[in-house]
Amino acid sequence: MMTVLKHWPRIFLALALTFATLPGFAQPGKLELKNLDKLSDKASEVNDVTLDQSLLQLASAFLSKERDPDEAEVKDLIKNLKGIYIKSFEFDKPNQYSQADVEGIRAQLTGPGWQRIVQNIEKKSGELNEIYLLKQGEQVAGMTILVAEPNELTVVNIVGPIDMQKLGELSGHFGIPDDIGDKPKNKPKLKQRTEGTTSSTEKKEARDQKK
């Protein structure tokens, strides 16, 4: 008993660290991206962004609407966010990352609340582009963009209520390039799909796959 009392600070710290790493106690919507760190050595270009809530608030305080009206929009966009975590790797040679690396991320996106809203798989090149939203009731509580191309792997993980419309409107402002390439005239607006419905395109694709 005395030993326990003597070492209680260490025991408390160990318990706190143990519980903090458990999925149930982790920040909801935050993905574990550490398994991608090993790709840094192979990549020709690495973008690693880790912005927790305190850093976002600090940046928000630095943004001034008097200095630039665009900054006011960004300030508004990030004010309620709890974190932005990005890992982006560009490689000179293809296939520098494994399928397991991608699946490690996708497995986390099968958790409760996550909904895949866009998926594009190109069979020939094996490209995978996906956008997921974390829904909490009717509210968007997070977003993940996964881009896996032969020479590139990018994971964007935004934690907190994100306004997709405002995010899209930032194109061409705040140092953000305008929409790349030939943007379709009617850019689709992101909406939540009703549970259980399947689009006609999906049905047709499913039929084609069976064949």
Binding site: L55, V74, I86, V118, N129, L167, P177, I180, P184
Partner: peptide, 25 residues
């Protein structure tokens, strides 16, 4: 932090547009 936010939003916006563009084309 502000520079990181700029970079993060640039990557996010670019990749989101890229994915949506792929889906449409």
């Amino acid at each position: 932090a502000e520079q990181q936010v700029r970079l993060a939003l640039r990557i996010t916006n670019t990749k989101m547009n890229q994915v949506l563009q792929r889906v449409n084309t």
